[in-house]
Design a protein around this nucleic acid. Sequence first.
DNA 1: GCTGTCGTAACAATTAACGTTGCGACTGCC
DNA 2: GGCAGTCGCAACGTTAATTGTTACGACAGC
Lengths: 144, 144
Amino acid sequence: MSANSRLTIAAHALAWIGLYQRQGHEVATSEQIATSANTNPVVIRRLLGELRRAGLVESRRGVGAGWSLARELESMTLLDVYEAVEPGPLFAMHRTTPDQGCVVGHGIQPAMQSIYERIEETVRHELARVTLASVLRDVLAAPR
Amino acid sequence: MSANSRLTIAAHALAWIGLYQRQGHEVATSEQIATSANTNPVVIRRLLGELRRAGLVESRRGVGAGWSLARELESMTLLDVYEAVEPGPLFAMHRTTPDQGCVVGHGIQPAMQSIYERIEETVRHELARVTLASVLRDVLAAPR
DNA sequence: GCTGTCGTAACAATTAACGTTGCGACTGCC
DNA sequence: GGCAGTCGCAACGTTAATTGTTACGACAGC
């Protein structure tokens, strides 16, 4: 599965902003975060834009502009981030509609759909148990 | 997440073969399955080849060739199929290594890695609870 | 006005999955 | 022994999504 790294990068950005603010800074720029994540500032701005729409971060414009947290990291979970940045489901159906004249082709999609929904629900449950504050704790606890 | 449909198609193929055998046929051809799944026979052969390596199906060659189940559908779970056809993890890390000189860039990957491993474990647990026999039951129970 | 940053559009680059074609290998049947 | 049907597999084209890049206007503080 060509998994995407949107959730990883978004968590990275949030942890970075959170740590930076703890160190007394008001706002973080997309360029600073991009340097840490080794990617392009526009990629960060795009992701943070989605997080802003979800009410997780705020942005200022003008000179001295940048990003800040809209809520405490303690009150943010990976589920919040996941829902903000992940568009589609974990597992996909057929790209083309299967043969509806075939019994299997007709019944397979509803069958798999309900299974997939149950699995995604447990994934969401697990994501909801992890706060961004605990992610940052784990980040800082990594051996160097 | 650009989810792929490999698990869905593989389950489709197994259910199709299982039902076909129940109706008294010995083997199913990749072309029959491809027609039901509305795709190309080579795609089916590729997927079934992976399932064969995992010991879930067998194939014959020559005239009257085709595919048959190597085990009962009751003894096959979606986890068996998932592990046979899904190469990578559900969530990806950064595409490029983050800045190891940054505290967050250095600690983010191990932190996310352990979270992702825990989540994949619960997904595997859920997949293991679903047999292909129950998938086929659900397929046949779909309203027409 | 100048500067630094966001906001966003447009497009290129990369990657993975999927689809297609072609052909050799195998096996049962005539 | 030849024929026909199907798998096995490689090669390549197509498609779609993500990611990366460039460009430029908007905004706000100095």
